[in-house]
């Protein structure tokens, strides 16, 4: 007879990993568009290049590991790593920075652990942290100035390619400068808030351009929430804890970066909705996600304020990655029919 006997359930929902990943990429597009609008072609070129590197590295390792290449490439996870790195790196970063970061992310922090689903750390952030500590100059000076500050035009596409791939960094000199977070942190020591905000970088109240970038990533994040690809706990807890810290410790604008700058500058929204929510390396229980998000927000504030780096999404996410398994073990939900939730792991006899 040979009837087909499969285990139940025999039906499956329409969801799939590649769809999930494709949706994440899709949700980054508004942010990418706004970045390109304000900061020029650099981010777009970086995203494309990093995606290419990510896919190529993934394919190479899969070949070496004798795994089906197209099957795994189709899950789109390498693509997500590439896109996120492209978005996170400075727009005028030389190509080899992007190459090193992306290849390291895919090869060392993902495939070396066994590929998709097995990496304890967020691969994109491992790559980012590596180049941040290895190439501090390129990572802090290659940021683009918004069109609002550098005049009304962006660096041309061809020139941008030359800056990134041919090392003609002088071409970008007029278009690049420190990020608002960086500038505020360094200027506020010697000035009052009013004088700092009067600087070209800030254009009065906010940081021309960056707030729109963050709003665009927020919009993408809300799309992911609506599609139930991410849950609300991590972004909300992260943004809330960051805000709380800022209100408690940084209420004095003349001493510390103000809340508006924390929320709408740097990689805050990208971090909250796209990076901290990476399911593989984050906490997975409902309560655990709250703790994980809150921890990320607190670390983000601590490093931004008292650390030596202007932004800290990568470090705070990586530090919380360490804690995720522990958090999960102690935040089991209360199951049906149980009086209370169980905690921790079983005792070894």
């Amino acid at each position: 007879m040979g009837l087909l006997t499969l285990s139940s359930p025999h039906t499956h929902g329409p969801n799939s990993t590649s769809k999930v990943m494709a949706n994440v990429v899709l949700a980054t597009l508004p942010g990418l568009a706004v970045m390109t609008w304000f900061f020029g072609w650099g981010s777009l070129i970086n995203v494309l290049f990093a995606s290419l590197v990510a896919l190529a590295s993934e394919a190479a390792v899969l070949l070496i590991r004798k795994r089906p290449v197209s099957f795994f490439l189709k899950d789109n996870s390498a693509l997500v790593t590439g896109v996120l790195l492209g978005l996170a790196l400075p727009p005028f970063a030389p190509f080899w920075v992007t190459l090193v970061a992306t290849a390291f992310a895919v090869v060392f922090s993902k495939q070396m652990y066994g590929g998709i689903g097995n990496n304890p750390f967020n691969p994109a952030m491992v790559g980012y942290a590596l180049v941040l500590v290895s190439f501090p100059v390129q990572m802090t000076t290659a940021w683009a100035l918004s069109t609002q500050m550098s005049g009304s035009s962006i660096l041309g596409f061809g020139d941008t390619l030359q800056v990134i791939f041919a090392g003609h960094s002088t071409l970008a000199d007029a278009y690049s400068g420190a990020t608002p977070l960086d500038a505020y942190k360094h200027l506020i020591g010697k000035n009052t808030a009013d004088t700092v905000l009067a600087e070209a970088t800030f254009n009065g109240w906010l940081n021309g351009g960056w707030e729109w970038v963050n709003m665009a990533f927020l919009a993408g994040g809300l799309y992911l929430l609506a599609r139930r690809i991410i849950t609300w706990q991590i972004p909300l807890a992260m943004l809330l804890s960051l805000s709380l810290c800022s209100l408690i410790f940084g209420w004095d604008e003349d001493m510390y970066t103000p809340l508006s700058l924390h929320l709408l500058s740097g990689a805050t929204m990208l971090g909250a909705f796209f990076i901290a929510t990476d399911p593989v390396s984050a906490s997975t229980t409902p309560t655990g996600k709250l703790i994980y998000g809150a921890g990320t927000g607190i670390l983000l504030y601590v490093i931004r304020t008292w650390g030596s780096y202007p932004d800290a999404v990568a470090f705070s996410v990586l530090l919380m990655n360490f804690a995720a398994p522990f958090i999960d073990a102690y935040t089991q939900p209360r199951s049906y029919g149980h009086q209370k939730a169980r905690r921790g792991l079983p005792e070894k006899n």
């Binding site: 990993t17 066994g114 849950t231 593989v280 984050a282 997975t284 409902p286 199951s335």
Partner: peptide, 19 residues
């Protein structure tokens, strides 16, 4: 079956509130 990406959709769907 592909690798688990720990997305937690299963926990959202579980009627027994398990993980």
């Amino acid at each position: 079956a592909m690798a688990c990406i720990r997305c937690g959709m299963c926990a959202e769907a579980c009627p027994a509130e398990l993980l």
